[in-house]
């Protein structure tokens, strides 16, 4: 079974819950090697997204839901993460086209498009200690899972597992992009906040997809 627009909306709502629950953790990670706003920025954006979902006409397609999320985050998050996650969702929305349901391959392709969007906007490479370090292995894992016949929930959970590892791999790295790069060597031995939020978002999508009978 694929993922309908209701599934996408449920995933976005669960992402909002997770971001809110982890707001302080993300702020603290960003305080150490950045400017202590990452959790606050994402919470503001996802809270705005939930009120849009509550108040406006329900989106008609998965693409419309992703596009609503993209434009809302772009106009409310600010910081580096706003345009990056916004572009990611926008590219994902374009990738899924007018499909009424996303299958496993469609989800993997949307994640690939999201990664391409983040890289096009932020120009970070793997190893720069950014969200790209979580998203890159996540996309590879999602594609491998989709190719081997996994369900949407399994694809997302493979992506989330790989993103957790990718995020953990940022700890020893010296940042070469974003605010943390100003610290040079002093940025090593800390987890990158953006890679952590990427892993959290993918986990929330996976749990939301696994929760129903999809």
């Amino acid at each position: 079974m694929g993922c309908s627009v209701e599934g996408v909306v449920a995933a976005l709502r669960s992402a909002a819950e997770v971001v809110t629950a982890h707001r302080d953790e993300l702020v603290e990670l960003d305080r150490v090697i950045g400017d202590a706003d990452h959790g606050e920025n994402l919470k503001r954006g996802f809270t705005a997204l939930v009120s849009k979902l509550d108040l406006s006409e329900p989106p008609a397609t998965p693409s419309a839901a992703l596009k609503l999320a993209a434009t809302t985050l772009i106009s409310t998050v600010g910081g580096a993460a706003g345009p990056l996650y916004g572009t990611a969702l926008l590219r994902a929305a374009t990738s899924v086209g007018d499909a009424a349901e996303l299958d496993a391959a469609g989800v993997a392709a949307a994640l690939r498009a999201a990664l391409d969007g983040v890289v096009a906007r932020g120009k970070a490479e793997p190893g720069d200690k950014t969200m790209v370090d979580a998203l890159t292995p996540a996309v590879a894992a999602a594609e491998a899972a989709a190719a081997s016949g996994s369900t949407v929930a399994e694809v997302l959970s493979a992506a989330a597992d790989a993103a957790d590892e990718g995020a953990a791999s940022t700890v020893p790295l010296v940042a070469r992009k974003g605010r943390a790069s100003y610290l040079g060597e002093r940025s090593a031995n800390h987890l990158d906040p953006g890679s952590r939020s990427t892993a959290l978002l993918l986990r929330s999508f996976a749990e939301s997809a696994g929760g129903g009978d999809r």
Binding site: A36, N41, V77, G78, A80
Partner: peptide
């Protein structure tokens, strides 16, 4: 003006 120490948004 963005939030304190955070960039403004495109809109």
């Amino acid at each position: 003006p963005g939030p304190v120490f955070t960039s403004p948004t495109p809109d």
